[in-house]
């Protein structure tokens, strides 16, 4: 993936409260640090209450539209497995899909009105592009706190995006207030990044 003259489209999708907007803020800030033009679009208000939260980030020389057109997403970062299924149609053929291995059923599923898919990850295997499942919750606990799952996913995204590590680190330092939180997030970022790189290598060798 490189930026060059075109605009890079990243879609982040998850559930209200999972840190989707914080993750997209880190990506946006890293792109600014890298000297790119960037636009980041998000949803506030009613939609955020336990519902689906998405953020569109577009990076390029000069970005006009803040929204990504359907089917033109280069990278989808899904914070939940069913959300990966929901948003996958937005990804272009050959694009990349990073999926947090986590299943969260909403009340309407628990009440029996709808069924949670049996195995979302298995359904995604047919996706025409790269699929990177990330055990973000487990890695986050290793990095010090379950709350770092979002930063783990940011690290995984960094493994496939054409932005340099120093700009990501600068973005993390800008975003978090205390030294302790910054260090935790830096650690989680590198853990996520290295994990995704190792996955990518394994997958390429395997295929």
């Amino acid at each position: 993936m490189d930026i060059g003259g075109r605009t890079l489209n990243v879609l982040l999708a998850g559930i209200g409260g999972q840190g989707v907007l914080t993750a997209s803020q880190l990506l946006t800030e890293a792109a600014v640090q890298g000297g790119h033009d960037v636009k980041k679009s998000e949803v506030h208000g009613m939609a955020q209450r336990g519902g689906v939260v998405t953020s569109h980030v577009r990076i390029g020389r000069k970005v006009y539209s803040p929204i990504i057109s359907s089917g033109e997403v280069d990278l989808l970062v899904a914070f939940e497995e069913a959300e990966a299924l929901r948003w996958r149609p937005e990804v272009r053929p050959g694009g990349t899909l990073i999926v947090n291995c986590l299943r969260v059923a909403p009340p309407i599923v628990n009440l029996g009105h709808f069924k949670y898919p049996d195995d979302p990850l298995e359904s995604l295997r047919s996706f025409n592009g790269s699929l990177l499942p990330v055990e973000a919750s487990a890695l986050a606990i290793q990095a010090g706190s379950p709350r770092l799952a979002g930063t783990i996913l940011v690290g995984a995204a960094a493994a496939v995006l054409p932005l340099s590590v120093e700009h990501w680190e600068a973005a993390i330092r800008t975003r978090f207030a205390t030294r302790e939180v910054t260090d935790q997030n830096l650690k989680a970022f590198h853990q996520g990044r290295e994990y995704a790189i190792s996955l990518n290598v394994t997958r390429k060798e395997g295929s």
């Binding site: 939609a47 519902g51 033109e72 929901r86 996958r88 149609p89 309407i108 709808f114």
Partner: peptide, 19 residues
């Protein structure tokens, strides 16, 4: 035009909820 989305794969809706 982009290929039509594969709607068969779409899961349940996830409307906003009370916290």
């Amino acid at each position: 035009p982009p290929p039509p989305p594969d709607l068969d794969m779409l899961p349940f809706p996830r409307p906003p909820t009370l916290c």
